[in-house]
Amino acid sequence: METTQWNLWEVFTQESPGDPHVHAGSVRAPDAEIALQNARDVYARRGEAVNLWVVPTEYITASTPEDQGAFFDPGNDKAYRHPNFYKTPDGVKL
């Protein structure tokens, strides 16, 4: 049988105001409006969200695990970006 398959959307939920949006999973939907409704029915049946984002999966670009080392290297070897790199004279609270 021929099947009609809707596009894939990634769903992000915000649990309470002030929280970041966190990836919850995906839904299939023909447009953004139905994607939002499906996301609500699938990922927010018990007040798990006060806000939802849906993004067509094809528009997400992710870094690849293979270049994990090289790609994040600039941030990995800079101890001087952390507070414990710096010394404080005894007796001072900073």
Partner: peptide, 26 residues
Amino acid sequence: QDEAGHGLYIYSATETLGADRAKLVD
């Protein structure tokens, strides 16, 4: 309704492995 939701969570997770949802249902 939860069971439908659970099915959808897992289909969604299965799709991350490159499986096609329509094909799985077929």
